[in-house]
Design a protein around this nucleic acid. Structure first.
Length: 434
RNA sequence: GUGGCCGUAGCUCAGGUGGUUAGAGUGCCAGGUCGUGGCCCUGGAGGUCGGGGGUUCAAGUCCCCUCGGUCACCCCA
């Protein structure tokens, strides 16, 4: 237990504060995703950060996310509640509850919570951006969704990542495959230990992506999902692959990729960064869930979506040297900084005028020395300093200094606001600093 | 949940084999230049050495516990 003074007043294990200027990079990333999603015809959906526990139970009783990583609790009304561990279930729940017209194409940006031991790229609260498209069975939408994510990564500047795809089969083929796999694995259960044996019984598909070399060697000879696909699933998968190829999106079929949620059917995919050295190299993933809505009591409705992990994407960006904080941070750039040598209160009114005109402006507080004000102006990164000085004031003017070039003019007080507003609206003429 | 490594100013780190008032760089504040920033010089503030217990004449240094960080397993974004 954290003792009150030492540990209580800090972010809980596995969580982080994101401060300026880094927070500006987050804002820029989410803004880029929002633009892209809107461009593809997706609207924003905002769902609660917690749901009735049953909503997430549908993610899979045999998955770690549900079995041991849920932040669940009873609220004061005795309801079983859980913090959202993943993005798809709440969106499907919202779809079932509101029955919007199909196709329903939505995007989200939201934190997820999983009670895990943290390490690099794995946190108890992590942020995902994602999309869900419900009501469309057409493989074209699988391709569209994957292309959206793929283009988002490349738009950030990422290059060193791979797209892995697989098909999980459907309600007809999956049980047949499951049985075949179980029969294949069971004879080895004793040799590979109780954990393995348990998994073979609970969820044999997830044995496939084990990192244990012994298990991997075994799995290499195991029956493959693709060989058990029904005609429809096989055709769907082939059309998805053809669609990706037609768009020039490189991918690898990874027949042993199963992913961690039970609701997936047919198309599943994952983006892995080669720039991340750790074990946490999945920067995004998703798939089709054609029976999920029905399992939640809604009409049979196919769906597909993905979630992309913001923390991991930013780690990958750092590793590839792209989308750096200084280059992209939103909201950190000031147009003007006031250096006040009068101290008569006129700076307050001028600041309000500037801001009302859309000029981002700031000042130093607390009657700082002139020198300190100049240093603050410099640090602020503002393009201009506006000088309230005695000489200028005598002529009903202010000083305007370009902090980049050092050039300084005297400007009539009445003109300073429109002038800065103009400069802002017609910013930096390339190559013509003077 | 299991295991390895790590924890000294806001930040990055020095502090052989225990030994007086715990240091540097950077950042912050002030001054040199009470109207001109970035460079330079001077000064200042800032630490219960993560926390607790133990060994010892003496612990930042050794031992135990605990909290936190990090990495791996597991799992995933």
């Amino acid at each position: 237990m954290p003792s009150e003074t030492q540990d209580a007043f800090r972010a809980p294990v596995g969580t982080h504060d994101i401060l300026p200027p880094e927070s500006g990079r987050w804002a820029a990333l989410v803004a880029a995703f929002a633009r892209r999603a809107a461009n593809y015809g997706y609207g924003l959906v905002i769902t609660p950060i917690f749901e009735h526990r049953e909503v997430f139970a549908r993610v899979g009783d045999s998955t770690d996310v549900v079995r041991k990583e849920m932040y669940d609790f009873e609220d004061k009304g005795g309801r079983a509640i859980a913090l959202r561990p993943e993005g798809t279930a709440p969106v499907v729940r919202a779809y079932v509850q509101h029955r919007p017209p199909s196709p329903w194409k939505v995007w989200y940006a939201a934190p997820n919570f999983r009670y895990e031991r943290p390490q690099k790229g794995r946190y108890r609260q992590h942020f995902q951006v994602g999309v869900e498209a419900l009501g469309v069975d057409d493989p074209d939408i699988d391709v569209e969704v994957i292309a959206l994510a793929h283009g988002f990564y490349t738009g950030l500047g990422l290059r060193r990542f791979r797209l892995l795809v697989n098909s999980m089969g459907d309600a007809g083929s999956r049980p047949r495959y499951r049985d075949a796999l179980q029969s294949f694995l069971r004879p080895h259960a004793e040799r590979l230990g109780p954990e393995f044996a348990q998994r073979v019984e609970d969820n044999p598909l997830r044995v496939l992506d084990s990192k244990n070399p012994e298990v991997q060697a075994l799995v290499a000879d195991a029956p493959k999902l693709v060989d058990y696909l029904g005609d429809e699933s096989r055709d769907h998968f082939e059309r998805v692959q053809a669609g990706l190829t037609a768009l020039g999106i490189a991918f690898e079929v990874e027949p042993r990729m199963v992913r961690g949620f039970d609701y997936y059917t047919r198309t599943v995919f994952e983006f892995q960064s080669d720039a991340l050295d750790g074990a946490q190299n999945a920067i995004g993933g998703g798939g089709r869930y054609d029976t999920f809505a029905e399992e939640m009591g809604g009409p049979p409705t196919p769906g597909i979506g993905f979630g992309l992990g913001v923390e991991r994407i930013l780690i990958a960006c750092d590793a590839e040297g792209v989308f750096a904080t200084g280059d992209v941070a939103l909201g950190a750039t000031l147009d003007a900084f006031i250096v006040d040598m009068l101290g008569d209160g006129s700076s307050v009114a001028l600041l309000e005028e500037l801001r009302a005109a859309g000029v981002a402006a700031d000042r130093a507080y607390g009657g700082k020395s002139v020198k300190a004000q100049w240093k603050a102006a410099d640090r602020s990164g503002a393009r201009f300093a506006v000088i309230l000085g005695r000489e200028e004031a005598a002529a009903d003017s202010v000083g305007l200094k370009d902090l980049g070039s050092g050039e300084q003019h005297t400007v009539p007080r009445a003109e300073i606001v429109p002038r800065l507003a103009d400069t802002r609206n017609a910013p930096r003429q390339e190559g013509t600093t003077r």
